[in-house]
Amino acid sequence: MVKTNKLSENMYDLSTVLDFDALDSVRPGTSLLVAGPAMSGKEALAMDVLKDGVGNGEGAVVVTTNDRASSVVDEFRTDVPEMDDSQLGVVDCRGDNSGGEAAQSGAYTHHVNSPGDLTGIGIGITKALEGLHKSGRDQGRLALVSLSTMLTYTDKKTVFKLCHILSSRLDSAGYVGVFTIDSGAHDDQTLQVIKQAFDGLIEFREEDGTRQARVMGLTSQPSEWKEL
């Protein structure tokens, strides 16, 4: 591989999506956990991080346990009209191979039998990354939505290891990763363990009827809670 320009040194600016100083210069290879209660906007945030990257010409890989690959592709096309289909790869792990997606498009989609099929997910991610690399997208972002669903298929030990291995892979690729987890669905110890597999944490909460967020792990001190 010839790397003439040091693209991998380019920092990612995620602060345009979520306005925190800690997010304005995120090192390639960083993996972030996005935790919050149900309906707090974590998944929308993860998707926005990817869409923002696509808008900058970067690649995007969505690993989803919840949404149909075709709906993800449609959503990206609608929200980022300038997107070229070659910028997006979707790994759909719902295990619902009802078909009917062949006519989809140029966006790469891969179907995995179940959120518990980690090898299948790995193969999907590998192919998506390979496609993006071939089309010259050397920077990109990956979202996994959601770890909570994966935790219903496999134990926390396996999910922890998966997160660690994925983070390492993203680090080698120079990508940024965002992984969502529903903080209300798991005990504190599980959350504490899963957090350790990541470089940083974006946390959401509801307080006095407002949505708040903070960022931890990327700077020496956690940020203050901030109203959104």
């Binding site: 980690l118 090898t119 997910i121 790995g122 193969i123 590998t126 396996t158 290891k161 998966l162 291995i165 892979r169």
Partner: peptide, 8 residues
Amino acid sequence: FIATLRGL
């Protein structure tokens, strides 16, 4: 990458 995931 794949082999490590398969090991899991």
